[in-house]
Simulated scan of single mutants.
Amino acid sequence: MTRPVALVLGVVLVLVGLLWTGQGLGWIGGSPMTGVTLWAVVGPVVALVGLLVALRGGRGRTPRA
């Protein structure tokens, strides 16, 4: 996976994870996911995975001699 793709994918996963967390906790209404505890648990996990992917994509690889 190239660095820009990993960075964008990571940011998208973080945003989706935050959205799911907000819906699961009932902070964001208008969805069948609102108030469902499952999404309050899954959301932070997805956000954490996205953060790790974004950090890895942002760091890149060090060139080998």
Rank of each mutant, 00 (worst) to 15 (best):
1 M>G: 13
1 M>P: 14
1 M>S: 14
1 M>Q: 14
2 T>A: 12
3 R>F: 06
3 R>E: 11
3 R>N: 04
4 P>N: 04
5 V>I: 10
6 A>I: 02
7 L>A: 07
7 L>F: 13
7 L>N: 01
8 V>E: 10
8 V>H: 10
8 V>Y: 14
9 L>E: 10
9 L>Q: 07
9 L>K: 09
9 L>R: 13
11 V>P: 05
11 V>C: 09
11 V>K: 09
12 V>E: 11
13 L>P: 04
15 L>A: 10
17 G>F: 04
18 L>E: 11
18 L>I: 13
18 L>D: 05
18 L>G: 05
19 L>Q: 13
19 L>H: 13
21 T>Q: 08
23 Q>A: 00
24 G>H: 01
25 L>M: 13
26 G>Q: 01
26 G>A: 01
26 G>E: 00
26 G>L: 02
27 W>V: 12
27 W>T: 12
28 I>F: 13
29 G>L: 09
30 G>S: 06
30 G>A: 07
31 S>Y: 09
32 P>E: 08
33 M>Q: 14
34 T>A: 13
34 T>G: 06
34 T>R: 11
34 T>C: 05
35 G>E: 01
35 G>N: 02
36 V>M: 08
37 T>Q: 11
39 W>F: 14
40 A>W: 00
40 A>P: 02
41 V>H: 03
41 V>W: 03
43 G>V: 00
44 P>S: 02
44 P>Q: 00
44 P>L: 03
44 P>Y: 00
45 V>N: 14
45 V>S: 15
46 V>H: 11
46 V>C: 06
47 A>M: 04
47 A>R: 04
47 A>D: 05
47 A>E: 08
47 A>V: 05
49 V>P: 03
49 V>H: 02
50 G>P: 05
50 G>H: 03
51 L>E: 04
51 L>P: 10
53 V>E: 01
54 A>I: 07
54 A>S: 07
54 A>T: 09
55 L>P: 12
55 L>S: 15
56 R>C: 08
57 G>C: 10
57 G>A: 12
58 G>Q: 15
59 R>Q: 14
60 G>W: 06
60 G>F: 01
60 G>E: 07
61 R>G: 11
62 T>F: 13
62 T>L: 15
62 T>H: 15
62 T>Q: 08
64 R>V: 14
65 A>V: 11
